[in-house]
Amino acid sequence: MNHRNTAAFFRVEGIVLGRGVLAASAYIAGNAKKFGERALRLGLVALAAPVHSLLGQTDRALAHRIVHLAFRGMTEDRVTILAEEYAEDILRSKILDQGVELMKRARDEGRRVVLLSDGVSSIMEPFARHLKHHDELVCNHLEFRDGEATGKLIDPIIGGASGGKWLRQYAAEHDLDLAHCTAYGSHGPDMLLLSAVGRPCAVNPDFVLRRSARDADWPIIEYHD
């Protein structure tokens, strides 16, 4: 079967990678320039954590916006270097082999493999260099002005409730037949993404997604160590 105009969309967090946005934000905030600043920024991330978890069940866009406020005023140099360090030292060891295997399989089937990440490009781009078997990475972008982070994410925010809308737009731009596309999601907000494709699949789903996947009779993959 020719899959030239089909793609496989992978949510990175939970499927390819065993770490999420909160941990990344905490790492960067905790390595700010001054000691007091580190405590303050880490505190912000800590305060944002429960909000992130609560909102994360439905719409992660607002949750991501809140978490990344902790970067406000950090220099682009620092964020970039720390993000590279985090990607190299931490994330590399958190790659989920089963997820990589899924990507490989999709690639072997001739699908365009698109990674969707809630993480910011400063982290995800260096991280993605360690991943083979993908064609494109779509992730969030921090806004920088005059060399400093404003704490804002640039729209559209990946991981939000507009995932389905974004996907249809992407499919139109790349001449994709969504009915033959595959999507792998792991969290509640991925439902709209999965609903938009012909071959959805839940991987290690959280409670919300698991229930929906069962209702919709979507295949569920569970990783086992």
Binding site: K33, T75, D77, R78, I81, E85, G147
Partner: peptide, 13 residues
Amino acid sequence: DRAIELTALAHRK
């Protein structure tokens, strides 16, 4: 100030 910060980051690395 940027040079000093980059120096700190390079030493850190």
